[in-house]
């Protein structure tokens, strides 16, 4: 078990950043996604043992998140989003410093720093000062600094943020290799859902301080047999109300003449066309929904946001 959180909440004054988060995740690669203000940062702080929860309990790597901050951080490799460089230091010294701060003996930290720098493709640059590193190499360097003590879990905060397409691809390749070769668990916190799809097996979608959805990405994005994207003409008809009345579900609708729908059980598209014809509506497009993570995310967060907006109104 990688982490097990039970009814975890965290308040900042009157603001509730996390609300009764219950989450159980097995070891593996996990994407943590959510809009700004969804509670990702707060959850990361709690996972790093830097912030105690206001209520609830939990363990990560078998450690109680309330009591084992330093011990816990020694088993996690954290790659921050920010530049986080130490001026005038050289690449090798920076990674070795990270090893020192993780409690490694002086010599081991230096030896290991050279190993991970080579692994991350920075062997040639280890004697260069940090201000001479490109954005892509700096991200690799931060990854090396997170790997130096051979952690059980890697916590990566926006590892491809600010990189050009080539740099992003290169970073993703490196992470893919790392996962394949070492089998380390990884929590990837990012806004780039394509990166999550590529690297992670599981995803946790946070929205407004709660878990909107979590589980294996493959299951969540698998095209449902009875789910279709429908476009139609003649919006004034009672097509949609009658569809709902027949047991169909409208999963997502942004435009008045298109929607993502789930057909009632035992229905085929033929029945949908028949219903449209009865309502005097012409279906102009019908295609099986092959919802990817991005659309799933938009659907989950848009639905919740819309609900909240309606409540506020």
């Amino acid at each position: 078990m990688l982490l097990d959180l039970q009814k975890l909440s965290r308040n900042f004054g009157s603001v509730q950043a996390l609300r009764d988060v219950t989450l159980r995740l097995e070891t593996g690669t996990i994407g943590l996604v959510g809009n700004n203000g969804a509670g990702k940062s707060t959850l990361l702080k709690i996972l790093l043992g830097l912030l105690p929860p206001s209520s609830g309990t939990g363990t990560i790597l078998g450690c109680d998140i309330r009591q084992t901050g330093l011990q816990l951080r020694g088993r996690i490799g954290y790659m921050p989003e920010a530049a986080a460089t130490v001026p005038l230091l050289k690449g090798g010294e920076y990674v070795a410093l990270s090893g020192d701060l993780y409690g490694m003996p002086f010599r081991d930290a230096r030896r290991r720093a050279h190993e991970v720098l080579n692994y991350c493709g920075l062997g040639e640059l280890r004697y260069r000062r940090l201000d001479e590193y490109s954005a892509g190499n700096l991200q690799r360097l931060k990854l090396a600094a997170a790997l130096v003590h051979d952690p059980e879990l890697l916590l990566l905060d926006e590892p491809t943020n600010g990189l050009d397409p080539a740099g992003r691809m290169s970073m993703l390749h490196l992470l893919e290799d790392l996962i394949a070769e070492t089998g380390k668990s990884l929590i990837l916190c990012t806004h780039l859902l394509k990166d999550v799809e590529r690297l992670c097996k599981q995803v946790v979608v946070l929205h407004q301080g709660t878990i909107a959805k979590s589980g294996p990405i493959e299951e969540m994005t698998r095209a449902a047999e009875n789910r279709y994207e429908v476009h139609w003409r003649d919006v004034s008809s009672d097509f949609l109300p009658r569809f709902r009345g027949s047991g169909g579900q409208v999963l997502h609708q942004e435009e008045p003449s298109e929607a993502l729908v789930a057909l009632p059980e035992n229905w085929q598209p033929k029945q949908l066309f028949e219903l449209a014809a009865q309502c005097g509506t012409v279906i102009t497009r019908l295609r099986e929904d092959d919802e990817d993570l991005e659309r799933l995310f938009m659907r989950l967060t848009a639905k919740e946001t819309k609900g909240t907006q309606e409540l506020t109104a």
Binding site: L50, P80, A84, S98, L101, G103
Partner: peptide, 10 residues
């Protein structure tokens, strides 16, 4: 923002 580098270590 090097503080995260330090404080996220052990």
């Amino acid at each position: 923002r090097t503080l995260p580098f330090y404080l996220s270590r052990r």
